[in-house]
């Protein structure tokens, strides 16, 4: 079973995010970059399927050269080869352009399954996975927490949580799965894995290499424009509900919810 995992590099979730002077982007100077956690679930699931069915896991990333480190990390976890789409003209591309670039790489690869994260933890768009499936003309299985491949490796049965229930979906292959939290617990890149990753192939491709027109990518080609970024409001101080007895407190709470918070 050949599997492709699309991987985005995002700021570490513990990084303190600062908004830049243009009010439309973040300051990236001191950011620690990591693999998007949802994509990491994809890497782990791909490795588990490879361990069961054999085949190859290819990791595809897009962005500046620093993304190499994230791809190498996935190789250290056990993936077989990496591809980095890197081109100055990609800077500022939106989700649709990203999906187009990924689709251009994927059309030359043999795959049974594609994994992406259900969303990037930076922009929270959740578009690249479904858009990529659409561009490739394959089924899209979103927000998946369990993957069971058939013994013959020709189809998958996957679980999606819906409102406390589980939706079980069966799909033929090839298909695209967007990974949701709960799918698995990603492994650590082990020391022997890190040493082995040094020798694994990692190819770089520009838009030209992929036969793509630079005018369809980057800031200028965005379908969506970011107008402004604002930091989340400071958390207001909490309120302690007064009252002598539980009954009094409950009554006071109901009053506050109605009159102040206006939730009902």
């Amino acid at each position: 079973m050949n599997i492709v995992v699309c991987l985005k590099q995002v700021p570490d979730t513990e990084t303190q995010i600062k908004i830049g002077p243009d009010n439309k982007s973040i300051v990236t100077d001191d950011i620690k970059w990591v693999i998007n956690p949802y994509d990491e679930f994809g890497v782990e699931e791909a490795l588990q399927l490879k361990e069961k069915f054999g085949g190859e896991v290819t990791v595809v990333g897009m962005g500046p050269k620093r993304v190499t480190e994230s791809i190498r990390t996935a190789l250290a976890m056990g993936a077989d080869k990496g591809i980095l789409i890197t081109d100055d003209a990609l800077e500022g591309s939106d989700s649709l352009a990203t999906a187009k670039a990924l689709a251009a790489v994927l059309k030359d690869l043999e795959y049974d399954l594609i994994f992406t994260g259900q969303r990037g933890v930076d922009d929270d768009m959740g578009v690249v996975g479904p858009a990529l499936a659409e561009l490739l003309g394959i089924p899209n299985l979103s927000l998946i927490v369990k993957v069971e491949a058939a013994e013959d490796g020709k189809s998958v049965k996957v679980n999606r949580p819906v409102e406390g229930e589980t939706l079980v979906i069966e799909s033929s292959l090839p298909a695209l799965i967007t990974a949701q939290k709960g799918l698995n617990e990603p492994r650590y890149a082990s020391l022997p894995g890190i040493m082995k990753a040094k020798k694994k192939p990692l190819e770089e491709k520009t838009l030209g290499d992929l036969g793509l027109d630079a005018a369809q990518f980057g800031e200028g080609a965005r379908k969506l424009k970011i107008l402004e970024m604002t930091p989340p409001p400071e958390r207001a101080a909490g309120k302690i509900v007064e009252g002598e007895t539980p009954q009094e407190k409950a009554a006071e709470l109901a009053k506050l919810l109605h009159e102040e918070a206006k939730v009902f």
Partner: peptide, 15 residues
Amino acid sequence: SMEQEILRNSVRDFA
């Protein structure tokens, strides 16, 4: 080196 960076991240995460 990139390997040393990956090593640091991985061991930190593990610890």
